[in-house]
Design a protein around this nucleic acid. Structure first.
Length: 266
DNA sequence: ATGGTCGAATGTCGA
């Protein structure tokens, strides 16, 4: 089974790219982030005709996540337990950040869009840390109940866990994504039992999944590794290969993120 | 030249 995760930065704007990507790489399951649409706004005809089931979760134009599968899609769950949807700050913006489903041979895949954090002292930063702790708790709970669970936590974590995951640490002085609390929150998820299954085969430095649209970051090879596939022990043993589809970042109409693809044989 | 780009509820914000 071949799974992938991709921050698509609007599914409506990039439906043709998604269809071509699924076909080109023979993808069984695709987790999307930043769909930027309510499900009612999506025309899923072409995906359905290509043999895929889709579960989209989005409440407004911000964020939104989805799972696309041609190997079954059941037992959908929306959002993490014990973490309130943002915000409590009176802006009235409610954002969808997580959805999961059982696909293939009993694999639970979570499509995750970790809150951005914005600025170090912004309320969204505290919310981001709380959200990551809720993810850790959910992962730990799952593994405690079922140590052999086939579970993957995939998506845009908005954290660069190591210095080599950004092109220049000096550029991130005083910025989010690289701070000690964010990295600790990320590593706590890993320490709960969910290892990065891509990094061992694709180490850095210079291995990125995101390049800002601005300032010619992609041609200058100035990117960040912030999109991950984290697998439970049963998943870790099943990995037979992986790659980051850097080609997808090229050309007109690209997302600012590249897809991350992992092959599993249970 | 200290910007440069996208997508969306576009007299403008979030990433």
């Amino acid at each position: 089974m071949r799974i992938a995760t991709w921050n698509i930065n609007s599914l409506r704007a990039r439906m043709e790219r998604v269809l071509a990507f699924l076909d080109r790489h023979d993808i069984d399951v695709l987790a999307l982030q930043e769909t930027k649409a309510k499900p009612s706004q999506l025309d899923l005809t072409a995906l359905t005709e290509a043999g895929y089931e889709v579960y989209a979760h989005g409440l407004n134009q911000w964020n939104g996540v989805a799972v696309i599968s041609r190997v079954g899609l059941s037992d959908v769950r929306e959002e993490l337990p014990d973490v309130p949807l943002w915000p409590q700050d009176g802006t009235g913006v409610v954002e969808a950040r997580a959805v999961s489903a059982i696909v293939g041979d009993g694999l639970r895949i979570w499509s995750l869009y970790v809150p951005n954090g914005r600025e170090i002292d912004h309320p969204h930063m505290a919310y981001k840390l709380r959200w990551l702790d809720a993810l850790r708790a959910e992962g730990a709970r799952t593994l405690a109940e079922e140590p052999d669970t086939r579970t993957v936590l995939v998506g845009d974590f908005n954290v660069a866990p190591y210095d080599e995951d950004v092109w220049d640490m000096a550029a991130f002085d005083g910025k989010t994504h690289v701070t000690a609390p964010e990295r600790a929150a990320f590593h706590a998820v890993v320490d709960a039992g969910f290892a990065d299954v891509v990094r061992p085969d694709h180490p850095g430095p210079g291995t990125y999944t995101y390049w800002d649209y601005q300032q010619l970051r992609f041609p200058k090879r100035e990117g960040m590794r912030i999109d991950f596939v984290l697998g439970s022990p049963a998943v870790q043993k099943a990995v037979t290969g992986s790659f980051i589809d850097r080609e997808e970042r090229k050309g007109k109409g690209a997302s600012d993120h590249a897809p991350v693809v992992v092959d599993l044989e249970f």
